[in-house]
Write a protein that binds this DNA or RNA. Structure first.
Lengths: 347, 347
DNA sequence: TTGTAGGCGTTATCAT
DNA sequence: ATGATAACGCCTACAA
């Protein structure tokens, strides 16, 4: 009798074993690339797998092997998602390539809420490892929880570079240094700076890069030109309103990310301050926003996608127990010069 | 001997059964809220669960019960991610509330590639259902594959409103109609329109809404004022370059989304055309971009988050077999008036 | 209303 | 190098 259409039952390891004329254990060995199988046997099994279109059942594997073949991505859910989009893509691609599936978990501060979110996630998800997007990698409680539970983790852009852990970073200090150098090279001396969210590691590094550049060029640091921010549009606006209302306002403003820089441009427009004629503006991240603003924003591009890919690869290697000695990396950056910055007009 | 720290073994259904003095089947009944359990027994079991902190093992459940308690979100990976971010949040929240986990699968056109992506995903993931974000719900091959495999699905903003399927939509026709009405009410008669990507259902509806409004106001439709687009910045720029170079350029341009509208603003700046004095511009979606542009963009806000939440709820209900009769919904929209649109200056 | 037995598709143990 | 057999934790019959 011919079965009509219907969801064809999936081939199991037993089917493969029968087809290949071996035991299920041998099939299992082949599937998991274990040693101690003759090439001849391996070929037989591979062929049977091919013929039957066998795909191991994840649930069974997970149940028997006590691992899940999935990793979690924990992140703080930001309003401006461009950065996370790239992270997501990088993590996803590497997971897929490595045969892992990806589970998401957006989290919310404060820390108490964070811990609840994560605990709940770990309870129901059983991931083999998690990736902590900044700034989650810097929350002590989170790391301790993971260590206690014996769950492997890897950090993207953490503050502290713990040599025992897995992490990737971009060279935020150098990036900021270079960006500031560029602004200085345009003749600017009064250069405002808007800091990022204090919980992010990048915040300090970008600030330090700015100061280092000023110092190297013999420009006296003026604390009045530095304003706090939270990495979002509104805080960028507030900071800009403050800086541009000074008696002696800056002729250039560096914001610690693009979203805040867009706030600066916004306020400048409102106040009738021409960019870049009377004010140069620069940001960080080269988000889609940067090229859509008017004038287009000078910014620093970090290879977020590549960073996320690598950190995921390192994590998976760790899970598999095949990790190299090198489990951190600093990534290069690109200075993207657009029209929001220009040579200082001697008034 | 006291065990030092260590990953405390998780309680299983057997542990709970022992603790409560019942059989594992009874525990299973309680956990799955099946009938035929006395309140007294249920209370005993609930307490045991509480005491032991029991959480059912997903893999075991999935293996034995032949379902996975997870749903997949399939989407085309757009460069401008704001829309997807809201979708993601809505889907995620509802999944979590319903005890489901969420698996992502960004996909790429063309259809052949799409099918590979999805097939691979279904092979390794075993989801109980999938959500198809626009425009994936309109790809015949995808829907057929899901139906053949017996996988439940739900669509976000599909083109065709198949009454048998689960879907949610926003009222794009009315939204566009209303937006155009507003532009007309400002005195504009030559109103340009940039269409969206042809594969999206919203594209046609937004275009129709525009034409309907013109007609109702007795404004003669001029095909020269309509330009194609692909929902992205670059195509918005191209369309704007075309429209603004006409002998008699439009005094207002409606772009089918914010990203293209940002392209229009960009080009206008380049050409020295003042917004809104000489050109009004409007978009759709109210992405973060809209408020960051200068001048801030008049646009239409759709409740993406709510739509995504509902469609997920409907899908989960369907999976559980508890679906109501109503498995579609049209959502309301809001016209967000900002400074990129203004009354027509009689030159 | 409750419990027992068998099986889901793997991995792991220990023979051979 | 290969294979039989017992877990893994739960659900679905079917009994009691």
């Amino acid at each position: 009798m011919i079965k009509a259409g219907g969801a064809d039952k999936r081939a199991t390891i037993t089917d493969v074993a029968r087809e290949a004329g071996v035991s299920i254990k041998t099939v299992s060995r082949v599937v998991n690339k274990e040693p101690n199988v003759t090439d001849k046997t391996r070929a037989k099994v591979d062929k049977a797998i091919e013929v039957l279109g066998f795909q191991p059942n994840l649930s069974a594997r997970s149940l028997a092997g006590n691992r899940s073949y999935s990793v979690g991505l924990l992140y703080e859910n930001p309003h401006e998602f461009s950065y996370m989009r790239d992270v997501l893509d990088g993590v996803f691609e590497t997971c897929t390539d490595g045969g892992y599936s990806l589970l998401l978990r957006p989290c919310k501060f404060p820390v108490s809420r964070l811990m609840k979110d994560i605990q709940q996630f770990l309870q129901q998800a059983r991931v083999d490892g998690v990736i902590l997007a900044a700034p989650l990698g810097d929350v002590k409680e989170v790391v301790e929880l993971l260590q206690k539970k014996g769950i492997l983790f890897a950090q993207i852009a953490p503050k502290r570079e713990n040599p025992d852990w897995i992490w990737v970073q971009s060279d935020d200090f150098e990036a900021s240094n270079t960006l500031t150098d560029y602004i200085v090279s345009l003749g600017h001396k009064r250069i405002g700076f808007i800091k990022g969210h204090p919980s992010h590691g990048a915040t300090t590094l970008r600030y330090k890069g700015y100061r280092a550049s000023l110092k190297r060029h013999g420009i006296k640091f003026d604390a009045a030109l530095v304003s706090p921010g939270l990495f979002d549009f509104e805080s960028g606006k507030k900071a800009a309103q403050f800086l541009l209302s000074l008696n002696e306002p800056p002729t250039a403003i560096i914001a610690s990310n693009d979203d805040m820089a867009s706030g600066v441009i916004h306020v400048a427009h409102e106040m009738g301050i021409k960019i870049p004629e009377r004010l140069s503006v620069a940001g960080f991240d080269d988000t889609p926003l940067a090229s859509r603003l008017w004038p287009p924003l000078t910014t620093v591009k970090q290879p977020i996608f590549e960073m996320a890919s690598l950190v995921t690869k390192l994590l998976i290697d760790d899970i598999r127990g095949t990790m190299d000695a090198d489990h951190h990396e600093n990534f290069e950056f690109d200075l993207i010069v657009r029209e929001s910055t220009a040579r200082l007009n001697k008034a």
